[in-house]
């Protein structure tokens, strides 16, 4: 799994160094924020403080961060059931995220959405979605709208490889290609569609599918935030320039189960495999060692970031735990946009 640096890698390395070190440090912090946030979510589940379930993003942080780093604040994203990472990377704040996960009133969606439905217009987040491939239409429609309104916005549509099984994805990729819509489809292949190795349920090559519709498509190492960022930025700016949609396959891995309750995973993957990814392909550690090696940061800086992130998590969690639940009359609000009429 570890790749030996070839000529391509060396060329990219100099490319990476042309990007401001502060930006790489920002991405390091963003990945760490997702990691620590998600660890705390798992704690909340294990200590029975969180209603329902959550699908942890740990292991895949480089994808959300690398892609969202290349977006403007008013660009749109759609996310998935495994969506906390995308929301945080697009600019969500932890306190209101935690509050939403706990069903509390100051949550992003007044506690009415929960873990799988965090949405926030202020950061261009059209919403996480609990239907696999459920948001691909919405994302493509947002791109359609951006083009019609002439806003120069780009949309990123995140989904896992499980969404490749849903027909609606092919319907919208067809239209995105026909109409040259400003959208990047980001497919995170974390190797398991719920509890099933993806290759048991997926025929052919993944990239052949978008290419069949005329989409530009490429694959990256989804554990390397540098590669994700540089590639995503190129494809996003390509879309912004009116050159049409693209498909980015990010090969990655989720460290935890399909959801927090998926503890015994031995029937679908080995502990050795999990350990190998954690030890050899951890996106945060990979970026951290590169930062040290290139003297873009020293141990002290990285430790300080970790400390600040832990403090942020702690304060955000306290905010959410102390926050009130919604008033009972909230249950009937927002069914319709014009409540007075009904």
């Amino acid at each position: 799994m570890m790749s030996t640096p070839g000529p391509k890698i060396r060329a990219e390395r100099s490319g990476y160094l042309s990007i401001d070190g502060e930006q790489w440090l920002h991405m390091y912090r963003q990945m760490l924020r997702i990691r620590r946030f998600e660890e705390q979510v798992n704690e909340l589940y294990l200590s029975a403080k969180m209603p329902g379930l959550a699908h942890l993003y740990i292991g895949q942080e480089a994808v959300a961060v690398g892609v969202c780093e290349a977006l403007r604040r008013d660009d749109y994203i759609t996310s998935t059931h495994r969506g906390h990472g995308h929301c945080l990377a697009k600019g969500a704040s932890m306190d209101r995220m935690f509050a939403e996960l706990l069903g509390k009133a100051p949550g992003y969606n007044r506690g009415k959405g929960g873990s799988m439905h965090i949405a926030d217009p202020d950061t261009g987040n059209l919403g996480a979605n609990a239907i696999v491939a459920g948001a691909v239409g919405i994302a493509t429609g947002a791109a359609f709208s951006a083009k019609m309104r002439g806003t120069n916005q780009v949309v990123v549509c995140f989904f896992g490889e499980g969404a490749l099984g849903q027909g609606v994805l092919y319907e919208v990729m067809n239209m995105a290609s026909l109409w040259k819509l400003p959208i990047l489809y980001v497919c995170e292949n974390n190797l398991y569609t719920e509890y099933t190795p993806y290759h048991e349920v997926l025929a052919g090559e993944i990239l052949d599918r978008p290419r069949a519709f005329g989409l530009h498509a490429e694959a990256v190492d989804g554990q390397d935030v540098r590669e994700v960022y540089v590639t995503a930025q190129r494809l996003i700016e390509r879309a912004r320039a009116g050159e049409g949609p693209a498909f980015l396959l990010c090969n990655t891995y989720r460290y935890y189960g399909h959801h927090v309750g998926d503890i015994d995973r031995s029937y679908y993957r080995s502990r050795e495999e999990e350990e190998r990814w954690k030890n050899e392909r951890d996106p945060i550690r990979l970026l951290g060692s590169w930062l040290l090696q290139e003297h873009l940061a020293d141990e002290r800086v990285l430790e300080m970031i970790d400390r600040e992130v832990r403090e942020e998590v702690e304060a955000a969690l306290a905010f959410a735990l102390n926050a009130p639940y919604p008033d009972p009359d909230e249950v009937r609000r927002h069914v319709y946009a014009d409540e007075a009429q009904l």
Partner: peptide, 8 residues
């Protein structure tokens, strides 16, 4: 609209 707490 409902899931977003009235935001979208």
């Amino acid at each position: 609209h409902y899931m977003s707490g009235g935001k979208w």
